[in-house]
Design a protein around this nucleic acid. Structure first.
Lengths: 245, 245
DNA sequence: GCGCCACCCGGTGTATACATTTCGGGCTCG
DNA sequence: CGAGCCCGAAATGTATACACCGGGTGGCGC
């Protein structure tokens, strides 16, 4: 327990409220939790009791368990035997690996996607970037995070290589989790200058290599903003238990 | 039906026989099916009825369903509503994407892994390569495929970046599936010269870039051995239905 | 004889009952 | 007074009952 802030104590179910009392498929439940984690309404460590969720969504535990199994398979939540599922809390080492993997995959996705988008798609993309900026300026943080994620997810969704696209979406989500976990207080997560706008421009112009390079630097800068000093877990414990001099 | 050879008609359950009559966890069932698909004992399109599996492993359908859900999540099997699960049968386009993704990921894994393996680990690796060669020479194809897969999986397992390592294992499995699907008759799948031996050598010497390059060419050559001409599915149908001249 | 339709069977989808485990509060004993 | 044990609430783990769906087959009508 000493290693974890342990987050909200009851169950963070209010973040999933909208479609209450309506029969939901396991896909819609999966989506609801996925979206809530992505937009950081469900912070890392949030507990997800099966019974509470089954009552919330108006289905039996079977459906809930299927959704949770899939979420665990995607590393969104952690499931340990006989314990409640909780939103994943990757350690510092895994965080670095996630960023490294995402740089590799997202770079290639940029390269493949550049120059392949229709005019209509480019309009959509620029709209997302614009919405993000306006949300940022008017301080609607919830919206800003949502749009920021959607920029990356949009590019992943429209990558010609959908195998890579899927991987990238998974990595975007895991990145969102570790940002929520390790961000320094007050940092403007993932709004670094107008990187997204410039990225969209390079994609539109078909400059794949430059887009990949920008994405690479974007992600590196993002990682550098995080508070990734170990100094936790076992080390703290040892220092606390050491007799004072 | 016209598009599929439809594989073995009953249920290819004999490929999973070993641990019959023993209570099995969903993990062990997952592993059994995973391994059977990996070594091509369960060819693409094989049907996996829940009841048959539950009897085979001596557990209820709940456990089976959990294992199947996870396998579907990993793209090992396809699950459609109210139909039996079956081993995945990716189309030609997805096959190309899988290879492209794997080249990207495996190349980076080689780069990261080169020079990081202990002497003992290098011994293991060389042993695998040796076993593969001997299996090849004595014509034990089952063993050869197993060892060949294990070479790649071994490297993935010991990559310093385990996030990438996991992705690579998933891609190795999917590659195995599409090889089983599209290999030209009689080809020696994934035994291209002594690529694996040379790869092991480069890894041992810490030459990451060269290892990545070799892996890249290895996979390219492998893809080229496949029979990836479309000419199936809808096109054949159109030609068949066209009135003769 | 040839189609069409109703039935049946084998499969998955969902809910629920029951077993098992974990964690914590409070009692008891040293 | 404190440490340890016991027990119960609440969660998950598993099995099972039943509903539903889809495909194949046999009979019936034309």
């Amino acid at each position: 327990m000493a290693t974890a802030p342990d987050s909200g104590k009851p169950t963070a179910a209010q973040a999933l409220a909208p479609d209450r009392h309506r029969k939901a498929s396991d896909q819609s439940i999966y989506d609801a939790i996925y979206e809530a984690v992505l937009t950081q309404r469900l912070p890392p460590g949030s507990r997800l009791p099966e019974v509470a969720l089954s009552e919330l969504f108006g289905v039996s535990r079977s459906i809930i368990r299927k959704a949770l199994t899939r979420l665990a398979s995607d590393h969104v939540i952690e499931q340990r035997p006989n314990q409640m599922a909780m939103v994943a809390r990757p350690d510092v080492e895994e965080t670095r690996q996630i960023f490294a993997a995402r740089r590799l995959v997202e770079g290639e996705v940029m390269r493949l996607t550049a120059g392949t988008l229709s005019k209509a798609r480019l309009q959509e993309l620029k709209r997302l970037v614009k919405d993000e900026k306006s949300a940022h300026q008017s301080g609607r943080d919830q919206d800003r995070v949502h749009c920021s994620m959607e920029v990356h997810r949009f590019l992943a969704r429209h990558c010609p290589n959908q195998v890579l696209g899927r991987m990238m979406r998974e990595l975007v989500l895991r990145t969102s989790i570790v940002i929520a976990l390790y961000k320094s207080p007050g940092m403007s997560a993932c709004f670094l200058g107008d990187d997204h706008a410039r990225l969209a421009e390079l994609i539109a112009q078909g400059k794949g290599d430059q887009a990949a390079d920008l994405a690479h630097r974007h992600l590196r800068a993002l990682e550098d903003l995080l508070d990734l000093n170990e100094a936790d877990t076992t080390i703290d414990l040892a220092r606390i238990l050491r007799p004072e001099t």
